[in-house]
Amino acid sequence: MPRRQATAIGFIAVLLWALLALFTVGTAPTPPLLLNAICFAIGGTLGLIWTGSTGGFARLRQVPLRVYLFGTLGLFGYHALYFSALRLAPAAEAGLIAYLWPLLIVLFSGLLPGETLRAGHLIGGIVGFLGAALIIGGGATGFDPQSLPGYLLALACALTWSTYSVLSRKLGDAPTESVAVFCVATAILSALLHLATEETVWPQGTIGWAAAIGLGLGPVGLAFYVWDIGVKRGDIQLLGVASYAAPLLSTLVLVLTGVTSPSWSLAGAAFLITGGAALAARASLRSGVTQSTDG
């Protein structure tokens, strides 16, 4: 598969993840681990059907156990943190902090062999984190200590997913079909932990179940398979750069659907986080041009 095509396929995940916060809000008050189990059961089933239709089960036997452990922990960790964050803090603000991951991917990927971390990446990082600081500081309304746990969990989300995505490059030989196993294992792990630690509260009514199913089919289903193709076979820095649209798109979806009220502090945070990623994007593109010229 050409690198450009793989990168474009990976970007489909960004568009699907723009709906992650909206659907998560729609599933309230389902607890995070139960929601994890429901969504990944759907996403895993989707992957197993695709794997079976392409004859990919034979390739799964060749995947080392450490790869399955890594993938399961990555998917389980990010979404357990994300769902918890949106239960403990306002959706738009927590979502914006979680969407620092595109910026962090650009920064972390600069540490990979053959990649370069430039001054523009660092400046973009500072700008993006100023946006997160604006959210945590509460903007015009001031610091809200009740939301702080949710914001910290959202920051942990960003660190988890960016680290997972960058380290996935080290596992480039693992077939994309292995993501189906990650999803099924995540569903089982989430269900067991749910039974041990949470009270069972199923999604409420048609909207609740529609949101849960939508999560499993899209942002917590198809998105993982196309993202896996992108980060392993495409341009990982360009994907990180293109992903700067994720926080803006997610915030716009929440505002347009009436879940979140527009405010200057929210707009400022979205501008800083998106702008920081754009600055890092510019540095990556310039780096790519320089490397092409040198070659």
Rank of each mutant, 00 (worst) to 15 (best):
V253P: 05
A245Y: 04
S190H: 03
A154E: 01
A41G: 07
W264K: 09
D235K: 11
L111T: 10
T72C: 08
P149W: 05
L33K: 04
A6N: 09
G131F: 00
L266M: 13
L152F: 13
Q146M: 13
C157F: 06
T200R: 07
L88I: 13
A119M: 14
A6F: 09
D235S: 09
R4D: 14
T160R: 02
I229H: 08
S261I: 14
L152M: 12
G114W: 10
Q5S: 14
G56H: 03
L65Y: 10
G74Q: 06
S190T: 10
G52K: 08
I135G: 01
G128P: 08
L192W: 12
A94G: 09
D235F: 13
I12Q: 09
D228Y: 04
V63P: 01
A80R: 04
F129V: 02
T176W: 00
I105Y: 01
V259S: 04
Q237C: 12
V179F: 05
P32G: 03
V179R: 01
L111R: 11
A92H: 06
A187Q: 01
K232Q: 14
C157G: 06
V259E: 00
V63L: 04
A80T: 11
G240L: 08
A246R: 08
G139S: 11
L239Q: 12
V106L: 02
R233G: 14
V181H: 03
G150V: 05
K170N: 09
L69A: 13
G26N: 01
A277V: 09
V231N: 04
Y244K: 11
I9T: 11
G125A: 04
F76G: 06
S178C: 12
V63Y: 01
F76M: 09
A28V: 09
R286G: 15
E199A: 15
S284K: 12
L192A: 15
A281G: 15
A269E: 05
I12E: 13
F11T: 04
L148Y: 08
T290A: 15
T141S: 14
A133R: 07
T251V: 12
L189M: 15
L15Q: 01
A6H: 07
T72F: 11
S284W: 12
I136K: 02
Q5W: 14
L60M: 10
L20D: 02
L248R: 09
Q204A: 15
D228C: 11
L171N: 07
A174L: 01
E199D: 13
R61P: 11
P113D: 06
L130C: 12
Y151A: 02
P64E: 01
A6C: 12
G52M: 10
F40T: 05
Y99S: 03
A280E: 00
C183N: 14
R4A: 15
P145M: 04
A85T: 06
E198K: 06
D235G: 07
R282L: 15
A185L: 14
P149K: 02
G258K: 14
A281D: 10
A94H: 02
T51Y: 11
L256K: 08
T176N: 01
R118H: 07
A281R: 08
G208T: 09
A8S: 07
F40L: 10
S53P: 05
T24A: 02
T27K: 01
Y225E: 05
G139T: 03
A210G: 10
L222N: 00
G110L: 03
W209R: 06
G52A: 09
L189G: 12
V67H: 13
A245S: 13
F271W: 12
L75Q: 04
T24D: 00
T197N: 06
A210M: 14
Y225P: 07
G95A: 07
